[in-house]
């Protein structure tokens, strides 16, 4: 077990290296580079060259890459070309909101998706199962922003159950509990909109995994022993059919972080997604680069954890 974990950690090193190279190359594609904002038609060639030298842009690309990496290791992700603030601090300030949103969506999709999938599998080919199947297809097919806009239109504008957007009223006063409830009201719709596609995926995966497990010999044995159907399903089948669902843990993380971009824009949620959308608008490459790196590393960590979890839960896998 320990050997497996350390091997996976070692394997992650070339991947992290690849992530930094790819990020660096993508940003190098940017027209104009970091000088584009500083140059105007009256800037002389000499001062452009001086600026290039000062920024190290006259050196070969691999030297520039190494310099950049050196800065990264010292925790310097560069400065926003738009606001001049340090990128890491900007991301750090926004990360908690995004983690709250993606974390809630993550929990929601598993806590709701798994029971629905189990229901679907144990009621195979009944109207309930067909209904849930169609629902799951709609869930993976609906654009998140369209679903979000529909939620706003129906539940915020027409029914006025939830606030349209934002992250809580800063002037709100009341007990801690009231404050919590107020925050929760802002969280419900974005979390739901972000979770839907993932929830549908979890549900379909649980359904097919459960159906497969229910056709196994040991289930037939359990039934022929005279165990109640309840016992068979929840004791024998459920645990085994949940093992493959762990792989969805890893898959969910990139989907949720990618989806946060869209959802945070729809609901004006002040997380890294909105920071990214603003950076896109401002062509702020330093911020985009920092976001790309941090997101990729979070995803890598998520995959690592889900792989390790899988190997712990399933004793059939040997390493």
């Amino acid at each position: 077990m320990k050997r497996y974990i350390s091997r996976r950690l070692l394997q992650a090193i070339p991947i992290v290296f690849g992530i930094t190279v790819l990020t660096y190359l993508i940003m190098k594609l940017a027209p104009g580079g970091p000088l584009a904002n500083m140059v105007n038609p009256r800037t002389s060639i000499e001062s452009i060259n001086r600026a290039k030298e000062a920024l190290g842009l006259d050196q070969p690309i691999w030297v520039q890459y190494l310099n950049w990496m050196g800065q990264l290791f010292q925790g310097n992700f560069g400065y926003s070309t738009f606001s001049g603030q340090p990128v890491l601090a900007m991301i750090g300030a926004r990360l908690p909101a995004t983690l709250l949103l993606t974390g809630t969506a993550f929990l929601l999709s598993f806590l709701v998706g798994i029971p629905l999938g189990v229901y679907s599998a144990t009621h195979k080919y009944t109207p309930g199962d067909y209904g849930l199947t169609v629902f799951s297809f709609v869930g993976i097919s609906i654009p998140a922003f369209f679903f979000g806009m529909t939620l706003i239109y129906v539940f915020a504008m027409q029914l006025k159950w939830f606030p349209t957007s934002g992250f809580g009223n800063t002037a709100f006063s009341g007990t801690d509990w009231q404050l919590f409830v107020d925050k929760l009201r802002y969280l419900v719709m974005p979390a739901l909109a972000l979770a839907l596609a993932n929830l549908a995926t979890v549900m379909r995966f649980t359904r097919s995994s459960m159906i497969e497990t229910l056709s196994q010999d040991y289930i037939r044995t359990a039934r022929s022993k005279g165990l109640s159907e309840r016992m068979v399903i929840y004791r024998h089948a459920l645990k085994n059919s949940l093992i493959p669902v762990i792989t969805i843990f890893g898959l969910s993380i990139p989907n949720l972080f990618g989806g946060a971009y869209i959802i945070e824009k729809v609901f004006s949620w002040p997380g890294i997604g909105q920071l990214g959308v603003d950076a896109i608008g401002n062509r702020d490459y330093a911020v985009l680069m920092g976001l790309t790196l941090i997101t990729a590393i979070l995803v890598l960590l998520g995959n690592l954890i889900s792989d390790i979890l899988y190997s712990m839960v399933d004793p059939r896998i040997k390493y």
Partner: peptide, 10 residues
């Protein structure tokens, strides 16, 4: 593996 670490949409 590397490309996989970037959310496609992102």
């Amino acid at each position: 593996d590397v490309v996989y670490c970037f959310p496609v949409l992102f």
